[in-house]
Amino acid sequence: MPVALPEVKETWSGKIVEVTLGAGPDKGGTRGRTVTVGGETALPFLHFEGQIPNRPVIAAEVSDRAPEDWSSLLTEAWGGVLEDPASWAARAEELGAEVIALSLDSAHPERGDTGAKEARATVRKVLEATSLPLIIYGPGQIDKDNEVLVAAAEEAKGERVALGNCEEKNYRTIVAAALANDQAVIAKTPIDVNLAKQLNVLIGDMGLARDRIIMDPTTGALGYGIEYTYSVMERVRLAALTGDAALQEPLLVTAGYEAWRAKEARTSEGVPAQWGDWNQRGLLWEANTSVTLLGTGADILVLRHPETISLVKYAVDELMKGV
C-alpha cells in the first residue's frame, strides 16, 4: 500500500499498583470474594498498548441509616432493605455489586450521633450478611470519622477493608487505624493532581504500603463539574504511566452519590419537558457519569441505583473485550 501508517502506540514506563480488597480465610479473613484493581500499564481500555489485568469494579453504596434525602427513584428501586444495612448489602450482592461501600452515616452529629459501639455492630452485621469486600466510610465529619473508623477498622481486622475518607485533615488517624489493623485507605483530595500526590506522599511517609492506598480524586457529576474530574483523572493517570510513583494508585469515583445529588436525577417536578422520562434520565445521569470516568481511569465506581449497577457492568464487559 502506498501510505504507511505511523506507529501511534505509546510506550509507558509506569504501572498502576494492584490493590486487593477483602481477605478470604487463607489470609485471615472471612470474605467469600475479594477484588483486585489496578495493574494497568496502558490508558483505560487501550488494550493495544499495554496490560489491563483487572477490570474496574462496581461498589454499591449501603448506609447504616435509611437515607432521608434520596430520590424516590432510588428508594423505590431498593424498597424495604434500606432500613437494614445487612439486608441492603445482601441485596446489592445479589444485584451484582462487587464491593459494598458501607457508610456509617448515623454517626454524624446531626444524623444520629452514634458512636464506636454502634459502628462495630453495623460492621459486624454487614460482614456477616455479605461475602463481598467492604469499603467503610465515616459520616464525613472529621471527629466522628476518627471515632467510628478506628472502631470499624478494629472490628473488621483481618478482612482488608478500605477506610474512607482519608483526607488531608485526618489522614494520620485513619492511616494509623489502617496500619494497626491491616486495612487499606481511600485517600481523598479535592480535584487537584498535586494535592492528590501530596496526600499519597504523606500517607506513604507514615509507612502504609502502596498496595493499600486507593485514590478518590473527588467526583463531579455530569453537568456539575464532570469535566474537572475527567481532566484531573486523565492527568493523574498519564503522570502515573509516565512513571510518577506517587500517583500510581487505583482510582475510585463516587459517581452514584454525585449523580443523584443532581436535580436532573433527583426530581421530576417543575422540570422542562425536554428533560424527558425521569427514570431514564436518572439512570443515565449516573451511568453516563460512570462511563465518562471509566474512560479516564476509574478502577472502582461507587454506585447507587440497582439498574445502573448492571448497566455499568455491561459497559465494563464491553470495554474489557480486547481488540
Binding site: 478506628v150 478494629e154 485526618n170 494520620r172 488517624t173 492511616v175 494509623a176 487505624a177 496500619l179 494497626a180 489493623n181 507514615m206
Partner: peptide, 12 residues
C-alpha cells in the same frame, strides 16, 4: 496499645 498508638501516630 492500639488506642494510644493511633494517637501517637496521628500526632494527637
Amino acid at each position: 496499645l492500639r488506642a494510644w498508638g493511633i494517637q501517637l501516630v496521628d500526632g494527637r
